[in-house]
Computed example of a mutant assay.
Amino acid sequence: MAQDEDPNPDQGWYYNTRTNQVEHHDRGRSIDLLGPYPDEATARRALEIARERTRKADADDASWND
């Protein structure tokens, strides 16, 4: 295996909340990352996905409390 060949070729895609960049192999600090996501396009939607999940969780909480 060549030295620059990745032994784990698909480690997922991440969205870095500090840099607002999508990352794949060279990732920032885990505290700054959302993911992993299955592909780059989904990682680019990370903040939108997080907002959707938060809205759903808030709605579920509200219905649980009723």
Rank of each mutant, 00 (worst) to 15 (best):
M1D: 13
M1F: 12
M1G: 13
A2F: 11
A2K: 10
Q3L: 08
Q3K: 13
D4W: 14
D4F: 14
E5H: 09
E5I: 03
E5Y: 03
D6H: 07
D6V: 09
D6Q: 11
D6L: 08
P7F: 13
P7Y: 09
P7H: 08
N8G: 09
N8T: 09
N8D: 13
N8C: 10
P9N: 06
P9R: 06
D10L: 05
D10C: 08
D10V: 02
Q11V: 12
Q11A: 11
Q11E: 12
G12N: 00
W13H: 14
W13E: 12
Y14I: 10
Y14R: 10
Y14Q: 12
Y15D: 06
Y15A: 09
Y15C: 09
N16D: 03
T17Y: 12
T17S: 13
T17A: 15
T19D: 11
T19F: 15
N20I: 04
N20M: 06
N20R: 02
N20K: 07
N20T: 03
Q21F: 03
V22K: 02
V22L: 05
E23V: 00
H24N: 10
H25Y: 02
D26N: 06
D26L: 08
D26C: 09
R27V: 11
G28F: 00
G28C: 00
R29I: 07
R29Q: 09
R29T: 09
R29C: 06
S30E: 05
I31N: 13
I31G: 13
I31Y: 13
D32I: 12
D32S: 12
L33Y: 06
L33M: 04
L33N: 05
L33H: 04
L33D: 09
L34A: 12
L34G: 15
G35Y: 05
G35D: 08
G35V: 10
P36D: 02
P36H: 03
Y37V: 01
Y37P: 05
P38K: 14
P38G: 15
P38T: 14
D39Q: 03
E40Q: 14
E40H: 15
T42S: 07
T42K: 06
A43E: 05
A43N: 10
R44G: 10
R44E: 06
R45N: 02
R45T: 05
R45F: 01
A46L: 08
A46S: 11
E48G: 06
E48H: 08
I49K: 11
A50C: 07
A50Y: 09
A50R: 10
A50M: 08
A50K: 08
R51W: 03
R51K: 04
R51L: 07
R51D: 08
E52N: 03
E52V: 07
E52Q: 07
R53M: 04
R53H: 06
T54Y: 04
T54D: 04
T54P: 01
R55T: 00
K56Q: 10
K56L: 12
K56I: 11
A57G: 12
D58A: 15
D58I: 14
D58C: 14
D58R: 15
A59K: 04
D60I: 04
D60V: 01
A62T: 05
A62S: 11
S63T: 14
S63E: 15
W64M: 14
W64I: 12
W64D: 12
W64V: 12
N65L: 00
N65G: 00
N65W: 00
D66G: 13
